[in-house]
């Protein structure tokens, strides 16, 4: 027994000494893409065994804070950093969109299979102007709507990218929302109950008849919650699907800025779902300080190409092909150690 242990410890010691040194990369940020990223990191380790990437899903805000403080090698956020936040970093930052996420409007209506909504209705409901299910404005879009009673509005109480996307959309379609409430990860909602996290909102919707609230798309899909179709800027009623999310991004490619910081809510393209957004990785332009840069660039190239295939399987909409090409070029501009 003792001999065996001795041998074992020797073997371990030996492998630790003589195996190739692994590059350890640390990142933190958004919770929304966490399932996708953790899959990517473990997949990539099979491709490149010397690269090990650790990721903590502490929220976009925390990701931006730690990235700014330089305690991590890369950050991740759902909504792009603001100019003010970029200034604080003190060096050039590259935003890399990795996938497209979206927000859906879910509801609890007995005997109601489908619900159609448009931007005016959503804004009116969340502003507290439209209070009852029997309102003629709702009836007009949904002639078969038979319920009546007060609408119980449910929103996220914790700061989240989901809220940021949802309020960004509302501010685009409703001047009144823009002026009264505004956009952000935490906003002061004029009406409604707050649930903590997607699970909190989903729990409240399930438990409260006649309620309506917004949830992150992957969460709603995996938990099979009823989801309303939304009218997009072109006038079509669109269901949230991976295709309609990618379509939303595709339609906005013409206005894509150099730094990729673009909101794609209320996209006017054909068949595009109006409540979608990119999720980003935050990378410092100058990574020449250590060998981490080379490893990170290798990962990014892989994630934008092979990684996109796994995205769809996990219900994340892949990037449009045209964007992927542009991003590959951008990744090349990251300065790495020679």
């Amino acid at each position: 027994m003792r001999k065996k242990l001795l041998l074992l410890s020797f073997a371990l010691f030996h492998s630790a000494l003589f195996s190739q040194a692994t590059t350890l990369i640390n990142g933190a940020g958004a919770t929304f893409p966490y399932p996708l990223y953790s899959r990517w990191f473990s997949d990539y380790q099979k491709v490149s065994p010397t690269t090990q990437i650790n990721y903590q899903s502490i929220g976009s805000g925390g990701g931006i804070r730690q990235f700014t403080d330089k305690t991590i090698d890369f950050g991740a956020t759902d909504s792009p950093m603001t100019d003010e936040q970029l200034k604080k970093v003190g060096e050039p930052v590259i935003h890399i969109p990795t996938a497209i996420g979206s927000v859906v409007v879910s509801y609890n209506l007995p005997n109601q299979k489908k619900l159609k909504l448009n931007s005016d209705l959503i804004a009116a409901i969340f502003l507290g102007d439209l209070k009852k299910w029997e309102d003629p404005r709702l009836k007009k879009l949904n002639p078969d709507l038979s319920v009546s009673g007060d609408i119980v509005v449910i929103h996220r109480s914790d700061g989240s990218g989901t809220t940021a996307v949802f309020t960004d959309y509302l501010a685009k379609v409703s001047p009144q929302w823009k002026e009264k409430v505004g956009t952000g990860t935490s906003v002061k909602f004029p009406v409604g109950l707050g649930g903590k996290g997607n699970e909190g909102v989903a729990g409240l919707i399930k438990q409260t008849p006649l309620s309506l609230g917004y949830i992150e798309f992957v969460y709603a899909k995996t938990n099979q919650l009823p989801v309303s179709t939304l009218q997009n800027a072109k006038g079509e009623f669109v269901e949230p699907t991976l295709a309609s999310l990618t379509a939303a991004a595709n339609a906005m490619m013409g206005s894509m800025p150099q730094d990729y910081r673009l909101s794609i809510t209320n996209s006017a393209g054909k068949g595009s779902y109006p409540l979608s957004s990119f999720t980003y990785l935050l990378i410092r332009q100058d990574m020449s300080g250590s060998e981490k840069g080379t490893a990170l660039v290798g990962f990014l190239k892989w994630a934008l190409k092979e990684g996109q295939k796994t995205a769809a399987a996990l219900e994340y909409a892949p990037l449009p092909a045209a964007l992927e090409k542009k991003l590959q070029n951008t990744v090349q501009t990251i300065k790495v150690a020679k």
Partner: peptide, 9 residues
């Protein structure tokens, strides 16, 4: 605090 700290920027 629990609700807003993680995403406060």
């Amino acid at each position: 605090i629990a609700n807003e700290y993680a995403e406060a920027t």
